[in-house]
Structures are given as structure tokens and as C-alpha cells.
Design a binder for these strands. Structure first.
Length: 405
RNA sequence: GCUGAGGUGGCGGAGUGGACAAUCGCAGCAGUCUGUAAAACUGCCGGCCGACAGGCCUACCCAAGUUCGAAUCUUGGCCUCAGCA
């Protein structure tokens, strides 16, 4: 029996906003929910206990990274990620599909891949050859192997093996990549179903599978992909290939095109999106969960979330301060007045500024705690506003004067 | 006081007659970051002008020289460090 289910209620908001509950073998997720990213089996600098306290219900681990190190035999010997990491809540794993995109780029440069320049990645119909960023060794991922790996990891939600299409992509390439992603989704589902049968015999709980919608920024492709994946017997739908360099307007378009073609009875995950202003847009368009590295990555760069201010209105900076700035050197106030997080209730901006300036490890922790708290609190307030019917008002307040969208 | 080594941009430290406004590292400043090759990366970093190209000025302890040309060679001075007294 599948210990995975989803229930939701529409909010009446035209674009499709909804609230719901995902039930997994390791617990319940109230949606919409933010999903922090713990690529290498850790949300950088934080313990599982801290994540729980911060209101994290689910977090994201990467199959590719954990496959390389420590290796699946190690994690398998623990019976999976939950025991290995000491986290008993729900886990979602990525398939390696994003690495098809990210490792193909020249390091830190915008995506300008042609298939030849893809030094660390080679895509074939059967799957993808990766060159390890650790030691250069070659590894092959296919839909089948990715499914097998994710079952070994024991995550509650698996992602089908896809290609995260780079941006910009020509319509021809976007179609080619999308069609291949669809074929891989079918193979992923077949492999997943077989693996479930064998795990079931051993009395192990079900692990869910989400198919991935691709199609770049092309309406016809996105709709076709949404319908294709929706027609499959997967447990949920993930939307990928966004936040890869396109404008926010284009990203919003993708959601507008896709949402109407998704089933109501399956959870939806938006892959890799979660800047503060994005959150309102993705919730409005009926996304249930969404993961993003931004809160934790930017935290380690000294960028701390604060409610929108007029100084930087209309930019990403409207939602954060750079604590390394000299204006905070003597600032005795907390990062965010009134914030209830551990960081804000114990330390001043000046102290955190100092920790960053001297590169003390605690800086990364305190900053990550604040940013994750900020986002989980925000999303919790959003859930509440959806229940009360005040979501659009709230959105208006947070995006006020902000013409990003 | 003697002997030896040395004084270069905020710091450390290359350069040792023209390709030097001066390699490089650190610090500083600015920017970037959305399914994490990210405690990362990129750019700037003597002054003035310029959007850029580039131009002008002042510079390698101080002074006087040698030379077409000196951070680099010579002489004198000042200072620092190490060893010996």
C-alpha cells in the first residue's frame, strides 16, 4: 500500500492558489511549503534539530552528490538518508537532472552551452555521462539508475530523471530536450514501479515519484509537457527548467501556462525557485512545495532577509541587507526588528557583521538560521492568509511598489 | 661601535638599466548569486580627466650623479633588522 497521499482545497484565487497536506511515511507536510536544499545530505551549517525548530517540514538532497560522496553503499548500509543524516522527517531527492544543466556550464559563467563545450556532461538517449567534479572520474546516470539510487537513498519523494534545459534554448533544442525528458519520465516510472515491487516485498514503505515538466519558455511546449506528465501514473508533478536565467516575467508565464493543465489531486513541486517575491507568484499559481538554495547560499554571503523596504524597491535587494556593509559595524539592533529567530533574539547586526568580516564559522550558521526562519515564517503566514482569504492583500503588501512582476 | 642583510603601493612580498604605474598574495571597494562544482565567483584597487580607447601628473627611503633612458648602476645621507661588542 502506498503511504503517500495528497489532499488540497482551492482558495478561489483564479490563478489556482491552493493549500493542502502531503502525507509521507516520515510525516506530514502542510502546503504551500518551502523546501531548503541540503545538496550533500546537509543543509549547510545546520543540524536536523535546528531545521525542525525553524519549521522546516521537508528538505532536498541531491542524488548525484550523495552518489559520488559518500557513495550509495555507505548510505545504503544505514538503510537510507534518514538514518544517515539523523533526520526523521520527509526528504525529497533530486534525480541528477539539474546537474545535466549546472555541470554543463563553464564554471560560474552564464549558460552558453553548445553540446561540444559540455566538459563535464555528455547527454545521450540512454542517459548522461558525468565527469565527477571531485576527481574527474566518469559516471553514467540513466532514468533507471537514478530511480535505483533514489530508492537506496530512501527519500520520501523522488524526482524523475530529466534534463534541466538551459536558457536560452532554441525552440528546436527545447523540444528535443523535452521529448527526451518525457521518454526518460516513462522509463523512470517503469523502473520506479519495479523497484517499489521489490521493496514492498521487504516490507519497506512506499517512496513517491514526481514527473518533471520541461519545455523552456515556449507556451506550446510547456502545455504539451504539462499534459504529458499529468497523464502519467506519477504521484506528483515537478516543474523544472525555470530560474535558469530567464526573466521573472518569463517564469511567471511558464506557471500560467502549466498550472491549468495539471491535475488537482496531485502535489506540485516547483524546482529551484524561491526568491521572496517569487514565493508569492508561485503560491498564487498553485505550487505546493518549492525548493531554493537562495536563503542558505545568500546567508553564507552575508545577505540577510528583511521585509521589503523602499530603498531598494523593485530589485532583489529590496528583501535583504548585506550585513558585511560598514554601516552595520556599530549597529546594535538585531538583523530584523521583531524577528523571533535565534539569531535575532540573541545577537546584534554589529556582532554578525564582525563574524563575517573575520570569517568566523558562526556567521554562516547565524545567517542561515535567520534566512530559513524568515522564509518558513513567511510561508507559514502565507498559508494562514490563504485560509483567511487575505493572500492577495498580503501579496500586495510584500510586492508593493515592486514592479518585478 | 664593528660585521652582514635590507629599505618597493594599506600590509606582505616580486622585480634588479628600457617591454614598469610596477608580477603575486592579503586587506579594502564594487558587483553576481533561484532543483548548490558556491564559507564561492567576477571586476576595481597611486592621483586627475574620459562612457571606452586613451591622455596627463606624481611615484619604488632622501639627495646628488652616471645614462638617450634608473625602482634597478655610482656616491653621500637617514633608517631598520641579524650577529658581534
Amino acid at each position: 500500500m502506498k503511504q503517500f497521499s495528497f489532499t488540497s482545497t482551492q482558495t478561489g484565487i483564479a490563478a489556482g492558489a491552493r493549500m493542502g497536506t502531503i502525507v509521507t511515511p516520515h510525516g506530514i507536510i502542510n502546503t504551500p511549503a518551502f523546501v531548503p536544499v541540503g545538496t550533500q545530505a546537509t543543509v549547510k551549517s545546520l543540524t536536523p534539530d535546528e531545521l525542525s525548530t525553524l519549521g522546516v517540514q521537508l528538505f532536498f538532497v541531491n542524488t548525484y552528490h550523495t552518489y559520488l560522496r559518500p557513495g550509495l553503499s555507505v548510505i545504503g548500509s544505514f538503510g537510507g538518508l534518514h538514518a544517515f543524516m539523523g533526520w526523521n522527517g520527509p526528504i525529497i531527492t533530486d534525480s541528477g537532472g539539474f546537474q545535466v544543466f549546472s555541470l554543463a556550464r563553464p564554471k560560474y559563467k552564464p549558460a552558453d552551452r553548445d553540446e561540444e563545450s559540455a566538459a563535464l556532461v555528455k547527454i545521450t538517449e540512454d542517459g548522461v555521462w558525468f565527469r565527477s567534479h571531485w576527481d574527474g572520474s566518469k559516471h553514467f546516470f540513466s532514468p533507471e539508475s537514478s530511480m535505483e539510487y533514489q530508492w537506496t537513498l530512501g527519500s520520501d519523494i523522488h524526482i524523475a530523471f530529466d534534463e534541466c534545459t538551459p536558457y536560452p534554448a532554441t525552440p528546436a533544442y527545447a523540444r528535443k530536450a523535452m521529448d527526451r525528458t518525457h521518454r526518460w519520465a516513462e522509463r523512470s516510472l517503469i523502473a520506479h514501479t519495479k523497484l517499489w515491487q521489490s521493496h514492498k516485498k521487504e516490507g519497506k514503505p512506499y517512496q513517491a515519484l514526481y514527473g518533471v515538466v520541461q519545455g523552456s519558455v515556449y507556451e506550446d511546449l510547456r502545455i504539451e509537457s504539462a499534459e504529458k506528465i499529468s497523464g502519467m501514473d506519477v504521484d506528483g508533478i515537478a516543474i523544472g527548467g525555470v530560474s535558469v536565467g530567464e526573466s521573472k516575467e518569463e517564469m511567471k508565464n511558464v506557471l500560467q501556462w502549466v498550472t491549468p493543465h495539471l491535475p488537482h489531486d496531485k502535489p506540485r513541486h516547483l524546482l529551484g525557485v524561491g526568491e521572496i517575491d517569487d514565493i508569492f507568484v508561485l503560491v498564487e499559481h498553485g505550487m505546493d512545495t518549492f525548493d531554493c538554495v537562495q536563503p542558505t547560499r545568500l546567508a553564507r554571503m552575508g545577505k540577510l532577509y528583511v521585509p521589503p523596504n523602499k530603498v531598494h524597491t523593485g530589485t532583489r535587494d529590496g528583501y535583504m541587507i548585506d550585513i558585511t556593509g560598514k554601516e552595520y559595524a556599530c549597529d546594535t539592533s538585531p538583523v530584523q526588528a521583531g524577528c523571533g529567530c535565534f539569531t535575532c533574539t540573541h545577537f546584534s547586526r554589529a556582532y554578525i557583521h564582525h563574524l563575517f568580516r573575520v570569517r568566523e564559522l558562526l556567521s554562516y550558521r547565524l545567517a542561515s538560521i535567520h534566512n530559513i526562519h524568515f522564509v518558513t515564517e513567511l510561508v507559514s503566514s502565507i498559508r494562514e492568509s490563504l485560509g483567511k482569504g487575505t493572500f492577495l492583500e498580503m501579496k500586495q503588501q510584500w510586492l508593493y511598489n515592486n514592479h518585478t512582476y
